[in-house]
Design a protein around this nucleic acid. Structure first.
Length: 947
DNA sequence: AGGGCGACGTA
DNA sequence: CGTACGTCGCCCTC
């Protein structure tokens, strides 16, 4: 199906599996919330309309058809009686809505097709075939994986993810990346594996992996069956025992592609909405004006069509490159020598100063990149970069409007040639997301040198408060503002809005991405120069990306069984607490519903609420419950209920945390591979996601136990944990230059006790526990802009006392107050704050007329240099520690960073050396006026490594 | 399904 | 009426 000459597509045809969409809508939306006053369910209709609108808005097809199954069996049922046994049991409530959906489609002027004796899938197969033969870019929306067999350069399957709107564009690369077979071989694979959803058994014990391996080896299912006797082991036996089933599966899952539908693609236009009909239907279903307008906006009419056509052109400054593919080393080399700029020798980026430099001298703030960007080129690999399950589908190179695409898998020669070219031209290389690219290239077996520029990191450094979720989002944020400044409009403009391919080129998406990266680089390089952030990019962020990529790839080994036991234990405790709470409440309230809880507490039990949430409801947070609990000593019922509720809150939260961890364990290596987000936190900190390993409980013994499930993996012996003591306070002492505070750190006495003795003017050994606690809270609160009101609340003292403490504190540490005030006033004057390393954060809200917004900005501006400097210091430490481990030839690896803590997985015999080396890297990351103390610990698990 | 919100875990 | 995050579950949508 791929033997087409080059040429423009005539348009886009969208083919939809109507039943699968209706099913999805029906089960996604609760009937209770979507029915008419008489109780007639409308959830499937509403959901269908909503999802259909979404797809149309995202893909903007000009032709559309929707396929439905029809009652009565097909040839498949005759062959396989249990066929779709699970699906045919559609609830009556859903079946009743199908005619309504079809009425809606009629009103919308959308063609729907059903054909007795055939399934919707066959109609889809036929329409897809018709679409590509008529030279339409054809999109098939289907939740049925059998549709993957239709995929080729002209046909893309839109496969809904967990959230419907995450439609995966299944192109030949994507299918290959996921299943390691070509789309045409997919039915062979599916026949071996079976399809639980459709009640079709495959070969027991054979999943996608084995099926792909066999098909890869023999070329096809047919060939495999011929050689079935050659396959050894249990899997081979299972295969031979199920040959009939597999053959049958293969017959059944082949889509018919030549049903006589009596229409042509040209007939499948849409957009002639019969508004009266639609009104009547929606009134009957009691849909509101908002729904109607949304649907009308999508389907009607010339007016909206015009604005859509006009809009994207306006803010375009991206030209689609000339793309070609390389299939062998020669093509690659020829393209590279013709198009890539001559390699320039450039000192390696990421060289951190060694030894005892001044705090910030490691960063060259005068480094500039605008000029180099003029001669740069873009490298961008596509695929799945999730640590632990990385797969790479293609690599794109782009320079000056000329692009080259390489399809994975690359054979060894091609891979090595690519690696050589990248290394030689690294000095001019631009990427978007170096860490992600490192993952993708490592899956190809290539190490990626430091690039000249990273548009994702650059965007973050230029505007740390803006976080782009995607390349497209970054592009529309950074680029459309300056629409008319760059290139003149030419043909081959790209539509930023739609994610889809442009016209006929199956590589258009990749070319577009590369072109966007090039444009972003051109836009961001001067910005970065202007705000002096390029040095930070080169010296800090890019090297940190490399460290983080290794940490993510390594992952953290966990004791799965132990986690499961913990989850069960917490679950049992939570259940027990729930039982007790229910007894006191006299009804089965959902303890996880603040709404239901406040009914019980404040209505049934008549308790007096404490505070409100920002939306006005009475809060049921831990603080409030604690207060109510104390107050209710004479109310047995309330006291009993609250006690149980508090226990439930705690154990249920722990159950939930452990459950989330278990779900993210990678089955292949029993490890948890988090993703460290480097461009999310506006202060310069990292964050951890999917799962978040930076918020594993640590404050009380029960929760802390979870840390004991984090253990060294095979070949490792222990975990070493190193953390900074009071970094933020030390930074505050250093930056403020307050002699008293500096002396407090140099004295070597217990810091908080020492500070308390100064504040209260009492000898160190006479400080009470309360005094120490209060002063400690004050110290930490300072860096957050804590008010005396807040301090009072936290310490449960009256505001007068809190204010007095604050006054005493500041009279002792006057320069600290001056420093904090200067942070804010400087930010107000310059518009931004700066960390010790020159990282900036902008605070426009400091000039807001809205008082609470302004004050919030003041607190954030006061905190940013402190939190941000701490983050920078840790980044330097990570780079140094990682390098030191490597240079010492050690096999131990950093696996986690929790803001001020590093966790290292240690190989037998290296513990001593690793500890000293990491400690040294952390302590000497910068030189401050106070010592940077690091405390370390070692143990057989994370909890035991604590100190 | 998808968005908002409350609640709560960490530094 | 303390900064910076991520995740879960509930609730609403008509």
């Amino acid at each position: 199906m791929t033997e087409y000459e080059d040429g423009e597509a005539r348009g886009t045809l969208l083919v939809i599996d109507g039943h699968s969409l209706a099913f999805r809508a029906f089960f996604a939306l609760p009937v209770e919330s979507f029915s008419t006053a008489q109780g007639k369910p409308t959830n499937a209709v509403w959901g269908f309309a909503s999802m259909l609108s979404q797809v149309i808005n995202a893909e903007r097809p000009d032709h559309l058809a929707i396929a439905f199954d029809v009652k009565g069996g097909t040839f498949r049922n005759t062959m396989l009686p249990q066929y779709k046994g699970t699906r045919d049991a559609a609830p009556q409530d859903l079946l009743d809505q199908l005619p309504l959906i079809q009425r809606m489609l009629d009103a919308l002027g959308v063609t729907y097709i059903e054909k007795p004796g055939y399934e919707g899938d066959d109609i889809i197969g036929t329409l897809a075939t018709m679409g590509e033969q008529a030279r339409y870019r054809t999109l098939v929306l289907s939740g049925d994986r059998d549709a993957f067999q239709l995929v080729d350069d002209w046909v893309t399957v839109l496969y809904p993810g967990y959230h419907f709107k995450d439609l995966k564009h299944m192109t030949p690369d994507e299918v290959f990346a996921k299943y390691h077979v070509m789309p045409a071989q997919y039915p062979d694979l599916a026949a071996l594996r079976g399809e639980t959803a459709d009640n079709i058994p495959g070969v027991p014990g054979v999943g996608d992996g084995y099926a792909a391996k066999w098909i890869g080896k023999y070329g096809s299912l047919e060939a495999l069956i011929e050689h079935a006797d050659d396959i050894g082991g249990k899997k081979g036996e299972a295969l031979r025992a199920n040959l009939d089933q597999v053959r049958l599966n293969r017959k059944v899952n082949a889509l018919v592609r030549d049903v006589d539908l009596g229409v042509t693609v040209e007939d499948l236009t849409f957009g002639q909405v019969d508004v009266d009909k639609l009104d009547a239907l929606f009134d009957e279903l009691e849909f509101g004006a908002r729904t109607k307008n949304r649907v009308l906006k999508t389907f009607n009419n010339e007016e909206t069509a015009k604005t859509q056509a006009a809009q994207p052109q306006q803010d375009e400054n991206i030209v689609l490159p000339n793309g070609q593919r390389a299939h062998d080393v020669k093509e690659l080399r020829d393209w590279a020598s013709a198009h890539l700029p001559a390699p320039v020798r450039r000192p390696d980026v990421g060289e951190l100063p060694s030894g005892n430099d001044e705090a910030t001298s490691g960063i060259d703030h005068s480094a500039r990149c605008s000029e180099a960007i003029e001669h740069s080129w873009v490298l961008n690999a596509c695929g799945n970069a999730k640590p632990g399950r990385v797969s790479t589908s293609s690599v794109t190179l782009l320079c000056a409007g000329e692009a080259l695409v390489l399809q994975a898998p690359l054979d060894e020669d091609l891979r090595d040639a690519l690696g050589g070219i990248i290394d030689a031209h690294a000095s001019g290389m631009v990427v978007h997301g170096y860490k992600e690219q490192l993952h993708l290239f490592s899956a190809l077996g290539l190490a990626l040198p430091y690039p000249l520029f990273d548009t994702e990191l650059a965007g973050y450094l230029a505007q740390p408060d803006f976080h782009a979720e995607s390349l497209e989002q970054a592009a529309s944020h950074f680029l459309d503002i300056h629409a008319d400044q760059d290139e003149p409009a030419t043909q081959g403009m790209l539509d930023l809005g739609a994610d889809g391919d442009v016209d006929s080129d199956p590589d258009a998406g990749k070319l577009k991405h590369a072109a966007i990266i090039a444009a972003l680089a051109r836009f961001l390089a001067p910005k970065l120069d202007m705000c002096e952030q390029f040095g930070l990019l080169q010296t800090l962020e890019l090297p940190v990306s490399r460290v983080l990529q290794k940490m993510e790839a390594q992952g953290a080994k966990v004791d799965t069984q132990r986690l499961k036991d913990m989850r069960d234990g917490f679950a049992a405790d939570a259940r027990q607490a729930q039982e007790i709470a229910w007894q006191w409440a006299g009804r089965e309230v959902n303890l996880q519903s603040p709404k239901q809880l406040s009914e019980v507490l404040f209505e049934d039990m008549g308790l007096k609420p404490t505070k409100r949430t920002k939306k006005g409801a009475y809060t049921t947070n831990a603080d409030a419950l604690q207060t109510l609990y104390m107050r209710s000593v004479n109310d047995e019922r309330a006291n009993g209920f609250l006690g149980a509720l508090l226990r439930h809150r705690e154990t249920n939260k722990l159950k939930q945390i452990v459950g989330t961890l278990i779900e993210t364990i990678n089955p292949f290596d029993g490890r948890i591979h988090t993703t460290f987000e480097q461009t999310v936190a506006a202060t310069g900190r990292l964050s951890s996601a999917d799962p978040n390993l930076q918020n594993i409980p640590n404050r009380n013994a029960v929760g802390r136990e979870i840390r004991s499930a984090f253990i060294p993996g095979e070949g490792y012996e222990s975990l070493v944990s190193c953390d900074y003591s009071q970094v933020e306070l030390r930074i505050m002492a250093h930056l403020s230059g307050d002699e008293a505070l500096i002396e407090a750190f140099r004295s070597g006495v217990d810091f908080h006790r020492y500070v308390a003795s100064l504040v209260h003017q009492v000898p160190v050994d006479q400080i009470t526990a309360d005094q120490r606690t209060h002063v400690k809270a004050m110290s930490y609160g300072l860096a957050y802009g804590l008010s005396s009101y807040g301090l009072a609340q936290q310490l449960k003292i009256n505001p007068g006392e809190a204010e007095a403490l604050k006054q005493k504190y500041f009279s002792t540490f006057g320069k600290v107050r001056d420093f904090l005030e200067s942070c804010v006033s400087e930010a107000r004057r310059r518009g931004y704050t700066e960390t010790m390393f020159g990282r900036r954060r902008y605070f426009p809200a400091l000039h807001s007329t809205n008082r609470s917004a302004r004050e919030a900005a003041e607190r954030a501006a006061l905190n940013a240099p402190i939190q941000g400097s701490a983050a920078d210091i840790m980044k330097v430490a990570m780079i140094r520690a990682s390098r030191a481990l490597q240079e010492a030839g050690l096999k131990s690896r950093i696996i986690l960073q929790i803001h001020d803590e590093l966790v290292v997985e240690v190989v037998p015999g290296e513990a001593q050396q690793v500890t000293e080396l990491v400690r040294n890297a952390m302590e000497t990351a910068v030189r401050l006026d106070v010592p940077l103390d690091v405390s370390t610990g070692i143990g057989a698990d994370w909890q035991l490594a604590a100190h």
